[in-house]
Amino acid sequence: MSTLLRQETIRAGDPFMARIDAGQRVRLVDTEGNEAIDTFFFNAEDPRERYSAVDTVRRQRNVYLTTGTELVSNEDRAMLTIVDDTCGRHDTLGGACASESNTVRYAHDRKFMHSCRDNFLLALLNWNEDFSKRDLGPNINFFMNVPLSADGGLRFEDGISGPGKYVELVAHMDVLILISNCPQLNNPCSGFNPTPVEFLLWDA
């Protein structure tokens, strides 16, 4: 019988960071539906080891994340495994929104809108000032729908998630989870209306 260790609501547009020990199980809940949860992982003992989108894609020979996907580090080690997924498919190629990429994607006047990279940097620097922008890499976007096409295209499309859908992961090493509950208002990744999400942690 597993014990619930922690339950947190991450408000719309907020950052979050926590430690997850090896063997613990985490659940992220898309409470109201169609909310992108930008997520990144570090090895808690050696933060130079971090989640690697391309090694994850390369190892499973597939670009989408779902039940059974091993989240692989830049040292080609399994950090966590997705053990349950009621949404069905998650993105890891779209990255996080940032002030600067918002100016490119939408308009120069979007520079001062809130963004996931601002959340990531704030959470990282509050955790430990040894972190910097250099420690970031392409993240996971849970509940975000970014289909790739056979002719080489990539699109941000309306979500395939819904209220209460969740994803569960088990950690294989002690990790730090870094989350930005995406504040993006310029594309459908959060349904143009960012909403709260839930973080739950069990001992097994």
Partner: peptide, 9 residues
């Protein structure tokens, strides 16, 4: 170089 920003832009 940022792979994700290159792709989505």
């Amino acid at each position: 170089y940022n792979m994700a920003d290159t792709l989505k832009a």
